[in-house]
Design a binder for these strands. Structure first.
Lengths: 342, 342
DNA sequence: TCATCGTTTGAGAGCGCTCCCAGATCCGGT
DNA sequence: ACCGGATCTGGGAGCGCTCTCAAACGATGA
């Protein structure tokens, strides 16, 4: 048989070099556009690569560069949340686009429960990825702590529930968003503004609660007895919480809910309790759920996951490039989207 | 310096072998539990690996086995659809779990527009993945055709818009679901049953339309003038389409919408047109959107993306194992979830 | 006791690539 | 005409692993 790649096998760098009439070294340099390659050599190699339909073997390259060209996106939330909350697809899509723009691939990993943690850690330390983007907002989550020991570049999206010092974080201004909601409700003349918070093992839920309270106190109002924590961010929990709130404070005239499904649940409870929205009780949600908020005509606090993930990727790339980035939390602004509910 | 790995470097198979006092070959065999390794050797190697915290270098392994241990999940839809439709997170999550169960990683790729196709193809043929799971439901999508030429094992989720012969597909019974919806509406006494279809370059939308028409004809009803195609699956399009329908056929008493956001839009148009749901007009949606359907109290056709993706992964694994699987479409059953709207 | 066969082991090649090094070539300055 | 430095090129080692091959090692049957 003649030399050269058989029709079934992919051409190697060696084949390209032979076709171009240069050495493997020169071919490699031309393809990776290193310095010190003559114009002519570069052209002939590129032409050869195109003619042969060459694409480099990533495994061989990784083996010597000790870089995989891939980043892990780790989502540590129970399945139900990941499936229901449109924040996650937005993050996945945004991360993919940002990573693709810098030529990196995205390995997606879900951590649904504590049982998944060891496997995830083992995988992450197995050298399959160069770094990781992590969303792990629950207080008890062992993942962030385990990650610290890994000397793998990691950037968190949203404050992790567990640790907070010495890590890189990109978060939204949850407190500011809650304040914004309350101030809007005050602005339309509401005075007895209740809140349905998310589960308080969730830093974001805590922050939203704090923002609500601060804004009320700043306005000289009394937050006592006007807050109720839901078990999770779901509609059912929102309905239950709102019912409790109505029992306790039947004269409330506005509700700030820490998520849009919670707001939807609250609206249902209000309707069942004979209140009209927004005439009797105004409602503001959080997250501006792209399907739910318009459908329910819900005023909601808007945040842009795309922007968050952009910062996360840039920070991670800086880390990978060996730049010394000072750890800390970057806080992103949020806005309010006005609709009919408030 | 002494021999052995420095504290900063990851131990190699060589290190494990030395620690265990066997050859690299034996260590490899023990770790991959090949045949012909003595009990003793296996134990001592495993202990050494544990002691050293060894994890194999995937790049080196790939280089020789010519397997990456990764599968690509390719989602070819415009960004807005991917972000809004909870089908996608369900697919991603399900695919991840199924793949993790067989020890494979998942590389996620979004194809938002035709411009992304060449890059995606180049990546897929670059040997980064062993196979691909592809969702590409649009008629004009060049991706499925390009994929054919790639001699890469591929399984489609939902009939691709472009090609259909000689490929592996796992689809839902869209026709059956539509029939189910219509039969339910007939069962509760409705006679003038309209439909808001999705964009008709979408095989699923066509199938749902066909199912609706067949069921009406089977019941002796006349589908003429009672169908209106929306531009996409969004709420706004649903509202517009419903308005047109109301203008044309003001006496309709039920609507089958090809998606839940379409149904939500239709409900809004109905309310604006002075119709009560379900008293005057009953509404059935499709997909059983986990946030939207309960919030809108919408009866909807339920499908289980998890089941679909399970079949897709199993088919792909069979392909990778070299089993000769006969190409064709596997059709999965759907069900109806009853709520207040019908 | 010796040939025989199945089991177990280590040596060594080689996957496709990058990168270090040394040699070749070309340029301007003296 | 000659030298020093920049520019360019090829040879070759080696990344960490798997897999083939042949040798070594029992145990077994004649």
């Amino acid at each position: 048989m003649a030399a050269g790649p058989s029709q079934d096998e992919r051409p190697t760098l060696e084949d390209v070099a032979a076709y171009a009439g240069v050495s493997r070294s020169t071919a490699s340099r031309a393809l990776n556009d290193d310095a010190y390659v003559s114009r002519r050599a570069r052209e002939v190699v590129l032409a050869a690569a195109a003619a042969l339909g060459y694409s480099p073997n990533q495994a061989a390259r990784s083996l010597v560069t000790k870089r995989t060209g891939a980043v892990g996106l780790v989502l540590s939330e129970p399945e139900s949340k990941v499936l229901d909350d449109p924040y996650y697809p937005a993050v996945m899509h945004g991360a993919f686009r940002e990573l693709a723009a810098v030529g990196m691939q995205m390995l997606l990993m879900f951590v649904d429960s504590r049982e998944d943690v060891p496997r995830t850690i083992r995988f992450l330390e197995g050298g399959h990825v160069d770094g990781a983007l992590v969303i792990a907002p629950h207080k008890g989550d062992p993942l962030p702590t385990a990650l610290r020991l890994l000397r793998l570049p990691v950037v968190f999206g949203g404050r992790p529930g567990t640790i907070s010092r010495g890590i890189h974080t990109v978060d939204f201004d949850n407190q500011g968003g809650a304040r914004m909601a309350v101030e809007h409700l005050l602005g339309i003349g509401r005075r007895r503004i209740a809140t349905v918070t998310g589960p308080l093992d969730h830093p974001a839920a805590r922050d939203r609660l704090t923002g609500w309270r601060d804004a009320l106190i700043a306005a000289g109002a009394d937050p006592d007895d006007l807050s109720e924590a839901a078990d999770d961010f779901s509609m059912e929990s929102g309905e239950r919480a709102m019912q409790n709130l109505l029992d306790r404070a039947p004269r409330l005239d506005a509700v700030f809910a820490a998520s849009d499904p919670l707001a939807a649940g609250a609206m249902r409870a209000l309707l069942n309790g004979g209140r009209r929205v927004p005439q009797d009780v105004a409602v503001v949600g959080f997250d501006d759920h792209p399907a739910l908020a318009p459908a329910m005509d819900l005023t909601s606090i808007h945040q842009d996951p795309r922007e968050q993930v952009g910062h996360m990727v840039r920070t991670l790339m800086a880390l990978l490039a060996g730049e010394s980035v000072r750890p800390g939390t970057r806080v992103l602004p949020v806005s309010i989207t006005h609709r009919g509910s408030a």
